[in-house]
Nucleic acid binder design. Structure first.
Lengths: 142, 142
DNA sequence: GTATATGCAAACCCTTTGCACATCT
DNA sequence: AGATGTGCAAAGGGTTTGCATATAC
């Protein structure tokens, strides 16, 4: 999957312009504005290839189907001059079901591992309401 | 699902005796020692019922099929006199694929949420090697 | 006896795969 | 042409559901 086909470009564009994690089906819909015949299998194949190329990341949240995000996503609150964190976690809005990248990490996970267990990585997911879905707060202009 | 059938008891026993989270299929195998004809659909139906009754909890880890655990599981390192924590996280062994409850929690998750986002809950999963699978450490007697 | 749970098969969702056709070089 | 990617349809896991039969109360 090293050729830059119209379908591959369309998948990449969909992810690059969204700023958040998308399901394969969402990616298909968005990318079909560029390539209307784009098949879901092709989306899956390109996603796997792009993950291999490190151009995108697979985001797996508890109990949810896999999502994908551009390799350079930033939190909505990240400043432009912030260095490009590859390690980050996610916020899952329980109302609109969107998933946003977040900055920061509690760190030092070894402290929570039972004796003799070796920690290699970790995942943290926050669940709640995003700025648009939070009650009585001004919905962010969008 | 309020009747105490042989199948319900078998599902409950399987979870109560394991000390860790199990997949529906694992639960079925274990419970079939008690009720050999136990069907997977019945396992799913009973699991749903038991979750409703708060007798067990559903454990969802990123990218993995759902597991279930008895409502009173403890970390392998937990002392018997420790109070019964309902809030806990999980350690997922990347080698044997077993999932263990762990104690402790970084807390204060709001600090990681972007402005305007409201945190309602969170999940933390550690990935690595359990005591039995850790390299060059004495495998724990089991 | 009657309501409810079980087993079995079919169906569902998400994801992967086989294969013939299309596309890129 | 030759290699690689695409679309389509079928298949594969995990989970749910409809329905006739078996079981608990």
């Amino acid at each position: 999957m090293e050729r830059m086909t119209r379908q591959k470009r369309a998948v990449l564009h969909a992810l690059a312009h969204s700023g958040r994690s998308l399901h394969p089906a969402e990616i298909q819909s968005l990318a079909q504005e560029e390539v209307p015949t784009l098949n879901l299998s092709t989306v899956y194949r390109q996603l796997k290839a792009l993950v291999g190329e490190q151009r995108i990341h697979k985001v797996e949240l508890p109990g949810q189907p896999a999502r994908f995000e551009a390799a350079d996503v930033r939190s909505p609150s990240a400043r432009a001059d912030t260095h490009n964190d590859t390690h980050h976690h996610h916020f899952h809005c329980v109302l609109c079901e969107q998933v946003f990248p977040i900055q920061g990490c509690p760190g030092h996970m070894e402290r929570f591992a039972p004796k003799g267990f070796q920690v290699e990585s970790h995942d943290l997911t926050l669940h709640g309401r995003c700025a648009n879905c939070a009650p009585r707060s001004q919905p962010a202009a969008r």
